[in-house]
């Protein structure tokens, strides 16, 4: 910390921080102001810097637009949402069947998985009865039916029936 202020040092301070003592380094301010009080030369230096400060203060400042304030208020944090309706306690299953069901399906009512299973079964039966699904294609069936075909022939026939993408073969 400087205990005394020289004219040279005051010049450096004014060159950097301008004329207002409020902007000067706090530790040196009292000594600088003491020098100002006794030195006309120091006062002239600060007055000249004050005129330059006035010119700098002409730089445009701007004010926030209403749209900016509106956008910020729209994006502000919101209070935490109140917790939803209280969840009703689950009814405990009763009896041996209930206990068994709860062991198999502990996630609530077993009606949903049971219903889904039944629906899948019905759909499968319906599809099976209405569609002509055969494991073997007609040519393959013919080939399989002829007893004089060798095993190699069957394999060749099966391979010929498959379409291999060209890029797999490269």
């Amino acid at each position: 910390m400087r205990s005394e202020m020289t004219f040279k040092r005051l010049g450096e301070i004014v060159d950097a921080y301008g004329a207002s003592p409020a902007r000067w380094p706090e530790a040196e301010r009292p000594a600088a102001e003491a020098l100002l009080a006794v030195s006309a030369e120091a006062r002239a230096l600060v007055e000249e810097a004050g005129r330059f400060d006035a010119l700098l203060d002409m730089a445009p400042a701007g004010v926030p637009s209403a749209a900016l304030a509106g956008r910020l208020m729209a994006a502000r944090p919101r209070p935490a949402a109140p917790s939803g309706r209280p969840v009703a306690p689950r009814r405990r299953a009763t009896g041996i069947l209930g206990a068994l069901l709860e062991t198999v399906w502990p996630y609530g009512s077993p009606a949903f998985p049971a219903g889904a299973l039944a629906a899948a079964l019905v759909l499968g039966l319906a599809l099976g009865s209405t569609s002509n699904i055969s494991l073997l294609q007609p040519e393959t069936s013919v080939a399989a039916a002829s007893g004089d075909q060798t095993g190699e022939g069957l394999i060749a026939l099966a391979m010929a029936d498959q379409a291999w993408p060209e890029e797999w073969m490269q």
Binding site: G62, A69, M73, R76
Partner: peptide, 23 residues
């Protein structure tokens, strides 16, 4: 999430920050 606090904080600082950025 206090709306009044958001507005008060903006009233206090928004202009100063905007002026800094403008310059």
């Amino acid at each position: 999430g206090d709306e009044a606090a958001c507005r008060a904080l903006m009233d206090r600082h928004l202009t100063r920050i905007l002026v800094l950025a403008r310059r």
